[in-house]
Design a protein around this nucleic acid. Structure first.
Lengths: 246, 246
DNA sequence: GTTCCGCTTCTCATCAGGTGAGAACATAGC
DNA sequence: GCTATGTTCTCACCTGATGAGAAGCGGAAC
């Protein structure tokens, strides 16, 4: 019911609300008066209704990235099974990548841990997320370089990283070709919200180096998963299905 | 309910929730299962509970500034009555000040309108809000100068504005001494959230120029009102009193 | 002014739907 | 294995939501 008030933001008189949600006015009145008395809603001087101060306190408690990871989880499990590899999901927190999901066969062989924070410049997920940063923030990040080399393939020079990120931005996915650990390759694609911002990224890891052909084969599945997650987040109202994966 | 889940964010099993909100487990189970089936909440693989994707869709519908203005309204009315002047509340939207409340005697004589957008560099409210901007954003704002002079007192030079804002930041309030309209003076103070960020500012307007003494007299009332609003927003849970001012 | 119309607020008899004890089942720890 | 703790579901009970209706309040039209 709250929902109706918020979607109308501002222009919702009680009578109008009653009409839009098709209930008697007396019911609408009470269903609004109760949340108002608790501070979840508020009414303006001219008897319209808006969100209340108590929602303001709940706002910072909501962890957007956590919700996204939770929604994404079943997609990642499916993807990992389809590809037969390890699939991970990461988000960017003050210029570090947080790994939030790790699933698939061989997950134990990979050095990452859930909730681990890692440098962004050397991972596929990190590069995808960096590539989407606004120019000002990106500039301040690359200014912290040159970056420590973890293998002989690691990109260490700011100028090289910028060039790499431009490529990532254009082609829509990122690669890590043994830049963290020798012999470990990853492909990552962004997960975008309705506004177009990349709020997370998912990657598939391979314990070999990848040929162009292998990349081209894996990519569609990754992109389909990312698109599915975007749709679940911002598309038509979720089907409310209960996912319960092993 | 929802609130308990959010405040526990993450570590809330059903049994734990039942204990913290002191209800039988079966009740807690249902009270969680219902929102989960609607997408307001979600459960993780390990049966803990977090916010659900549907809340993610409601998030952008909540207008923080509007809520704040609504909470602040009664304080402004009281302040205007106490000072016998026009009192206004404004917020910063992409470097312009939006006037959201205007109250008090003589409100008709002042050129501002509710919902009007005005340049920030020349008003007291604008200066208070600019002074609180992060350095990066402030730099990009002053770079848009020099600014058009509206009166012979208007600050037009970027360097002068930076100097003025440094003073504002230090002493905690801003003045407008005929910088928009000859003969109109304003005093503005910031309204701060718990984090310390200034999310809005309130000002008192006088149709004279102000002496040091007059400023010193009005200031405590302004600051008390701002403090009261901050408390109502972030202090101990609001008293849920029904304000109904003329 | 008077009349009308739409909105808000409150009351109260009715009954849908929430409640919570308890059983059945699933896990985890020792 | 056993015990302790958590999850899920059922069902008889009764609380608390429901909505028609009435009363009060403006504002617009005439």
């Amino acid at each position: 019911m709250l929902e109706a008030v918020l979607t109308n933001d501002g222009r919702s008189s009680i009578a109008a609300l009653a009409r839009t949600m098709d209930v008697p006015v007396s019911t609408a009145h009470r269903q609004v008066a109760t949340p108002v008395s608790q501070g979840y809603l508020a009414q303006t001087q001219d008897r319209r209704h808006i969100a209340g101060p108590r929602l303001l306190r709940l706002l910072p408690l909501i962890d957007e990235k956590q919700i996204i990871a939770n929604v994404a989880a079943p997609f990642l499990h499916r993807l990992a099974r389809a590809l037969g590899t390890v699939v991970q999901l990461g988000t960017l927190e003050n210029e570090m990548v947080t790994y939030r999901i790790k699933t698939g066969v061989g997950a134990g062989d990979l050095f990452t841990r859930v909730d681990m924070q890692l440098e962004a410049y050397c991972s596929a997920i990190g590069k995808v997320l960096l590539a989407d940063l606004p120019e000002a923030e990106l500039a301040s990040y690359v200014a912290t370089g040159p970056f420590p080399a973890l293998t002989r393939h690691t990109i260490t020079q700011p100028a090289d990283l910028r060039r790499e990120l431009a490529i990532v931005r254009e082609r829509g996915f990122a690669l890590d070709a043994g830049e963290i650990v020798e012999g470990l390759s990853c492909i990552a694609v962004p997960i975008r919200r309705a506004g177009g911002a990349a709020v997370a990224a998912l990657s598939a890891s391979f314990f070999t180096s990848l040929s162009r052909r292998e990349i081209a084969e894996a990519l569609p599945a990754l992109e389909a998963a990312a698109a599915g997650i975007s749709l679940a987040l911002d598309g038509p109202m979720a089907p409310a299905a209960v996912h319960r994966e092993p």
